[in-house]
Design a protein around this nucleic acid. Structure first.
Lengths: 220, 220, 220, 220
DNA sequence: GATGAATGAGGATTCATTCAT
DNA sequence: AATGAATGAATCCTCATTCAT
């Protein structure tokens, strides 16, 4: 149970898998599960669905993962941890001279490669983050404080109240993550594919402009 | 099944319930269901949970609603339709001279009164909007075209490409809705209650500033 | 889980059931379960078996008992508790002047009416008494100490070492319980039905003689 | 299935195992299985448990035994057959001048060396002796008739009705076997280890006394 | 001889739903 | 209007067994 989600989140490289063939099946399961969990969340995802996507039977899943929870944890770990690692490094390392716009763009590019992840994160968020809490704590903390520093030392320092910074960070977070969450429905309603290259470029452009407006030098 | 979600969405007032006592129970069920669905989504919500919140047994729910789907539809109908109605009216009626900032503020105030609703909407969004499609279609269309008009005729016309307008609307949408979606987790991680009056005021303030930056007259 | 086996074992009368019809089904389930658990133990008993004996479907069991464990606990409680109550009362109340032979006979008569019970107890004993522990503790303690007193104050005091008393009690226990445990197999191997009236009378007779030999006045 | 338990039970020495290394593994498997089956019975024992005790993986068991049934049969064969052989020989060979007390003592000593066996037998008894039937038939028959003879020709002849003899044998059987069955639970409830040397000596002592009382010369 | 992977069969349990009361 | 009882369908999971390596 609780073992599936260890207290200390490893932001290090994922462990090496056993045999080549075993690695492949595990990997395929993780891929399928990432998709499924991304689409339907934890509760909404049925192992039957995952197994079908992989092309195996349900019990075979248990040769690779101890439980649905453990599978979910593995998906989160594999998907989110590297993402967070990248972001945190990017944010922390580049420090105050890092360009907020670049971080946002980088994030969008990362998420665009695996759009199931932001949906997964949003599902988790709505579910109270039972499984993601530690990942988020390791993430939000640095990000928020970094954002504070960025703005406090940046050219927009005088434009925002320190109390408002968390709201700004949340806003950017929600814009970025929500964009991917909306994509399938949007396409369904509208015919427009938000995940197309052009749409992504446009989104990045908007985000750049937004970042500039929010955090850039006062245009006046 | 499909009957529960008729093609034409009534944006009119909800129908009056049967007897006085029945109406009350129905209302209490709707309240409980709104909470439950908001917290756990459609799949994640169990009728047992709803019944428990109401203080009745599961089969009694069926004296008021034909099915879980119908209950869900009723919750959406009761919760979202008035919201959309207000927004659409507000956006359309006030027309080009309507202030975008006011619409945003109004929306936040409306959602703050029933924070389960935005979570509900987000759940639906992630689930592919199976039940919300018509509502959203009736909503997004007017909103988007109205937003186009607003910007095209507004002072920020030269600042945004028409292609970027949907992205901007999505962005605002995600900021507003995501804020409420994050609230419980945020409180859990952080201790800060995003639904407190002060936080809401701050959020509205940030949104006003944002609207001004995005849509207001060029500050240069 | 743990709730199914509360710490304090009520040796009091069983609670009154709800409706008459509900009582009947619950009772029939308990009867079927007592049989099944008696025949196959906890692990070996399948809910399908119980449900079939009752003539209902498996999920219906859950309208009456929360889980297999809870059902098992209820069977033990209903079956063993009254038995223990009777025995303990009998042993304690009649005190030192109580006749050991009478207690043994009474026990056999009680068990003969519901031969699944001793088998149940033996199953539990072999399984480590996970569920019976409290019952046994409440039982063995008084019985052993009472037995000590009986013998210490009785005419056979000089015949047995105090250290040997627990062995004697165990022996009597095993004779009584084992007799019923063996019955089905014995019949199968031998054609003799140990549960027939004649056999039971003979067994009681043997037990009386045995008691006399063990605890009675020195025949020399 | 049925093949695993041939009709004619070989009371002869167990067959020699294949290779030296294989023999060792087989033996270790049998040891582990004897323990496991003794603790949990046939149904309650999982191959995973056996494999874990041996330190191998489940499929490896199948290099040594064709099925769980076959493994169980082998355990019974290896454990019970020699025991029965010894007992039967002892009972039959020594004939009427054999001392009943010695047989009982010998049995206790044999069982004390591998206390899993009596538990195994009891499990089998409760399960209807599906696998043990032939062994028991080969055993109980001689034992019973021998017992008859012993008593009929012995000094207690006038003390027992011939009809009561099976009850006496059963009683002795249940005392002896039940003692071991109770041991783990007793230790758990009581702290006293019935398998300690002292306890065993005491038990043998009690059994001797009992035998004397039951079958010995009339003390009057 | 050992084992990773796969799986059919089956087990306990949950859940939405129905129905008689 | 409320509910105890019943249930088909589906879920997660376990287990003995097989097979290729």
């Amino acid at each position: 149970m609780s073992d599936a989600f260890p207290q200390d989140v490893s932001l290090e490289s994922p462990p090496i898998r056993q045999s080549e063939k075993g690695r492949l099946t595990s990997e395929r399961i993780l891929d399928a599960a990432e998709e499924a969990f991304g689409e339907n969340g934890f509760e909404g995802t049925k192992l039957r669905d995952v197994a079908t996507r992989v092309g195996i039977r349900i019990p075979s899943l248990y040769n690779h993962f101890d439980s649905k929870e453990a599978l979910y944890a593995a998906v989160l770990e594999r998907g989110i941890a590297p993402l967070l690692r990248t972001l945190v490094e990017s944010a922390v390392d580049r420090g105050a001279h890092g360009n907020p716009e670049d971080i946002v763009e980088q994030t969008v590019e990362l998420l665009a490669e695996r759009p199931a992840l932001p949906r997964l994160v949003l599902h988790e968020t709505l579910d109270g983050g039972r499984h993601l809490r530690q990942l988020l704590q390791a993430w939000l903390g640095p990000l928020l404080s970094q954002a504070e520093k960025l703005v406090a030392e940046g050219p927009a320092a005088n434009r925002w109240d320190p109390d408002q910074l968390p709201h700004l960070v949340l806003a950017m977070y929600n814009i970025v993550v929500g964009y991917f969450a909306m994509a399938p429905l949007y396409r369904d309603l509208n015919g427009t594919d938000l995940l197309s290259r052009e749409a992504l470029v446009r989104q990045i452009d908007v985000l750049r402009k937004l970042s500039a407006l929010l955090f850039g030098p006062d245009p006046r």
